[in-house]
């Protein structure tokens, strides 16, 4: 299929706002762009109304750059800070009611598979820790149990940022927040382990201060979700407002948290490794797939 649908109709090119002409001429559609090329192409999200210095916006920006096919991707989001930025990116965005993201994404993905049987249309859920681990927990888990083929990205700021600082299931034990003055009484939910147990083919934990790694995780997760099964990325995206992190210390905090509870972890099922190796030319997995076969012999 040609990429004509990300171009304007003949005669209207000149009438398009400059921003759109730049997107058509210099955007990432139909090209392979990388975070290392930032500044050389027009990004699909350039402005946002989130708090200055918010690490979540950096992560969202990196994720959007990393999508393998932005012209064929739909993001599903919900209430929470992230949607403020995601919804104004130049790719389709669906707002699922708070908690409903993974049910909405399930239906959407199935519909797209029926409507476009010869084409991959990627669906990516991007929602907060409250949206996914609390109110959306059941929908999230069941989408995994059903092996729905889309990616879920948790923007984990360990708090309800958008509503002023309530604790979530992902808040750390003992954390005192504006609206959790007695401190959290329970442990942070181990979502990556739950994801693995529930049957996700790919699970990763990342922080935004390593852009290349974010890119690799997003690419793998989206590709694997096309044909193998559900994938999950959990990203530490600090809330500098609710955790009172000075804006110039946001990256330092991310580094500290990475060294503590957010060490990089990645799980890839054997089937997913084989798929990445054979279908998408990931050399490291192509080899491993062969080795596994040899051992099995």
């Amino acid at each position: 299929m040609s990429l004509d649908y990300v171009k304007s109709t003949p005669g209207f090119e000149k009438f398009m706002p400059k921003d759109y002409r730049d997107l058509i001429d210099h955007g990432p559609f139909g090209k392979k762009v990388s975070v290392s090329q930032v500044g050389t192409f027009k990004e699909i999200m350039e402005e946002h109304p989130m708090c200055a210095g918010c690490a979540m916006t950096l992560f969202i920006r990196l994720s959007l750059i990393s999508l393998p096919n932005p012209e064929d991707t739909i993001i599903v989001g919900t209430a929470g800070c992230g949607r403020l930025a995601i919804s104004q990116a130049a790719i389709p965005f669906v707002y699922g009611n708070y908690g409903d993201t993974n049910a909405v994404a399930s239906g959407l993905k199935r519909g797209l598979m029926t409507r476009f049987p010869d084409k991959h249309k990627d669906v990516v859920v991007m929602a907060g820790d409250g949206g996914l681990a609390d109110i959306g927990f059941s929908m999230l888990m069941h989408s995994w149990f059903r092996k729905e083929k889309f990616t879920t990205v948790m923007l984990d700021n360990e708090v309800y940022g958008n509503t002023g600082g309530q604790e979530s299931g992902m808040t750390n034990i003992g954390s005192v927040l504006k609206m959790a003055p007695l401190g959290k009484k329970f442990d942070k939910i181990d979502m990556p382990d739950l994801a693995k147990t529930a049957g996700c083919a790919y699970v990763a934990m990342v922080v935004p201060n390593n852009p290349k790694r974010v890119e690799q995780c997003i690419k793998k997760a989206v590709l694997i979700a096309r044909e193998v099964g559900p994938t999950y990325i959990q990203a530490y995206t600090s809330c500098n407002i609710e955790y009172a992190i000075p804006t110039d210390k946001v990256m330092e905090d991310a580094k500290n948290v990475e060294n503590d509870r957010y060490q990089f972890k990645e799980y890839i099922s054997d089937e997913a490794k084989q798929y990445l190796g054979e279908k998408w030319g990931y050399k490291e997995y192509a080899k491993k797939a062969i080795q596994t076969t040899e051992v099995a012999k």
Binding site: D4, Y5, K7, S8, T9, P10, G11, F12, M16
Partner: peptide, 22 residues
């Protein structure tokens, strides 16, 4: 005020309609 259905080159019909708008 032309909207997305005539501004983007979805298919031949969009192209023809865009011209008619002009």
């Amino acid at each position: 005020f032309p909207g997305p259905l005539v501004l983007w080159n979805w298919n031949d019909h969009a192209k023809i309609k865009a011209h008619a708008v002009l």
